[in-house]
Design a protein around this nucleic acid. Structure first.
Lengths: 205, 205, 205, 205
DNA sequence: AATTAATCGAGACGGTACGTCGGGTCTTATG
DNA sequence: CATAAGACCCGACGTACCGTCTCGATTAATT
């Protein structure tokens, strides 16, 4: 988070209202979800959260920071999978990603990400989150597979991860442009097909 | 383009200045490239292009349309590849995509795309352009490969295309977040690795 | 006025809406009259005038300037008196001043004046207007009286003027603090008494 | 003062810091003197006085009250004159007023007064102070003069007082708008001339 | 050549949101 | 209790842009 509250707040003065942070973030995500980027206004967020604008600006320096933070605070446990097989892990990873993008905050995250990459100024923890998905999660999955002897040690894990993450993203982009969303069955099916494409030769059906 | 100049301009009154269209689009891309979305202003574009705002609004109905148009006007011949082998075609497709993203307009296109998907309201021809890249190009490539007998007819072409397009996008996202760009050698290498991952079993090295 | 439109507006771009200036000034005076200084807001003025805030700020650099200008634009013909006698002229001057202060704009003018004197930064034409009232009008009145042979040439005209202006101001201040206003009869009576006090010895009853 | 501390403070809890009242008032006058009305902020006063805002608001209900109070606490003994002659008394009264206005607090008082008259809401003791200057002091001076037999009993004392108070105010206004101040010699001279104008016929030189 | 009509650069227009600031209130921990 | 600190809600500030509009000045094609 860009909210620089690492330091311990010593108790002089009125403490910051505990719930406010969360209420603002929730409001931000709702506003963004309803109105998109245009129509995502700080006044609107403050009003919806039931706080004053100064309370928002006390915590985030500007609109971008707020959205970035809001979005990265919802990047859940996408990579928290462990099915016992590489195929299963990749499948679940893909499903988790598809589901992640169905959450407005999840999709918003992509937008923020593209923004951040377009004008590299403030990154912070958010980029790490992304790196996690792109790199660490897949590394863990691959490590387990190698340990199990499923695949050779020179498995191009990261490249596979990029394909999974990228393909899910592109498919979601496509379906959203059609004005639709994937239902659970579709996700299941597409995840399966995707895994078949990227899975190492030896493990394909 | 969304510029609604399909109708024939019957020549009464002053004709539109020929160069203006292009100068505005170039200015738009430069402004976007320098300042990002925030900081991309119509006044700025008009000033940089040396035209009045009315000249801009005479051709594009709003800011979104201009950027969308500017961006899609630079979507070059990504899929115009024909090397004689599926491997070669996929490799060149990946290389073209990597290069496309190095062009500010190419990167901007992704941004616009994500925006459009986030708030599905006005899409128009732009979405088609994207669909083209995702679908038509890969379909052509696959059709040729099947014709040549390289691969069976049930090749999951679109899924492979999604992987290629997606992986390139994610890798570019990653490298941009690091503040870097890929050089030609890197692109070559990454394209090769990527093709190895998504290429059907039978054609792998 | 602090509106720096002395230069001739050459016809490039859309000309400023002719009526706007006046509508804004009127709105300003009404807002000030209704709500006082606090509660006199630029948003309120713009809304009441039916213009955008930018239209206001295009003409006046800030709130103070607007009020100053609004107020000085209503400093009417206080000194435009010529009754044929010094006594009559002074009497009418006093009556005009009393009446001037009954106009909200007239009273506001005093407020602005005191402010300006408290923090001497931007004065401009407004101060001149005031100086006019204090000095030029009384000088004219005195000059005519001397010409007519009513009074000697060494008449302390300015000092008399200060007494008239000051006394009317203080009396108005007093009556306003009581929450009242002078009616016409009271004004008449007080003007008469005042003139008796300041009129040169020879001309007193 | 509007500080509602007529009640006896029963000694429960921490007693109010003794010096605070004065420090705040001084800070208020300094802030007002330096920045004028705009730029006179409660935060600024509290900071300068080295107290918390609550300490200020515990004593004064709002900004107006504080300034009003600060200002009226410095309204010294303007009318405390007794020279033995009407001419001398009026002269000293004028000199005292001129001097009063050289004190920032003295001038600020006028601003507060005009404010109060513009929006008659809270008056309190401050108006009385003004009434004193305008009425009581001049009444006393006149009473003594009548007692001494200097002037007839129907002397228009209040009108004379208004002229003195008003003229001094207007002259000060004028000189302040020039960005100057009167020095002692100037005050002396102007007081003398002023008295000559308003003094009853029989007592003029 | 005169007329007509669309486009041009410029810039003012009514709005809306920005990020800041101040007013007056409230809530802590410390006297 | 009062205090110093400082967060709170509110709303105005002055700025920047949006997309529209209105100018006078071009610039052809049509009379």
């Amino acid at each position: 988070m860009s909210t620089p509250q690492g330091e311990i707040r010593r108790g002089r003065g009125r403490p910051r209202t505990p719930g406010a942070e969360k209420r603002i973030i929730d409001a931000a995500l709702e506003e963004y979800g309803e109105h998109g980027w245009s129509g995502f206004t700080m006044d609107g967020v403050a009003r919806r959260a039931g706080v004053g604008k100064s309370t928002v600006y006390l915590r985030w320096q500007d609109k971008d920071s707020l959205l970035t933070d809001a979005v990265s605070s919802h990047s859940g446990d996408i990579g928290g999978v462990d099915t016992g097989s590489l195929r299963g892990d990749l499948h679940d990873l893909a499903v988790n990603l598809f589901s992640h993008y169905r959450d407005p905050a999840g999709w918003a995250a992509l937008r923020v990400l593209v923004d951040a990459a377009g004008a590299p100024h403030q990154l912070g923890r958010f980029v790490e989150t992304v790196a996690d998905v792109q790199v660490r999660f897949i590394d863990q999955i691959a490590a387990r597979a190698i340990e199990r002897g499923e695949v050779p040690a020179d498995l191009p894990a990261r490249e596979i991860g990029q394909c999974v993450y990228g393909s899910v993203t592109m498919q979601t982009l496509g379906v959203r442009l059609e004005g639709r969303e994937f239902d659970d069955a579709e996700i299941e099916e597409r995840a399966t097909v995707l895994v078949d494409v990227v899975l190492p030769q030896a493990l394909r059906p």
